[in-house]
Design a binder for these strands. Structure first.
Length: 101
DNA sequence: TGTCCGCGGGTGT
DNA sequence: ACACCCGCGGACA
């Protein structure tokens, strides 16, 4: 997991990224869920920060991480529903994959 | 339903 | 070492 090429990320950030990567395609998880995975269910805010600072936004499905009440969160709120669109397309892709099979 | 506080860790100063 | 920040969560009004 740890490469020397990687930026200075702390263990907790790695936990967050790893937990986020564990989220199944087309599925969504809450910050609280991720926080619990890393062993800090109260560090939900820190989780969000780690995601925001994530070095690989491409492999990190930040849009897949939402608030506990089902809201997409501030990221999407600051844009034109970026999370929602990404998630929607993601589900569309998943559906297409299933359809092709 | 709306607003406030607290939790946990990062980064900047 | 201290203070402020953050893509939240939960409690209280």
């Amino acid at each position: 997991m740890n490469n020397k090429s990687v930026k200075k990320l702390t263990a907790f950030e790695w936990k967050v990224l790893s937990a986020t990567l564990k989220i199944p395609l087309g599925e969504t998880r809450t910050y609280q869920w991720v926080a619990k995975q890393i062993g800090c269910p109260k560090a939900v805010r820190a989780v969000g920060q780690a995601l925001k600072k994530n070095p690989y936004p491409v492999i990190i499905p930040c849009h897949r991480v939402i608030k506990s009440d089902g809201s997409l969160g501030g990221y999407a709120g600051n844009h034109t529903g970026r999370k929602k669109i990404l998630l929607n397309k993601e589900q569309n892709i998943l559906a297409a994959m299933i359809g092709k099979s």
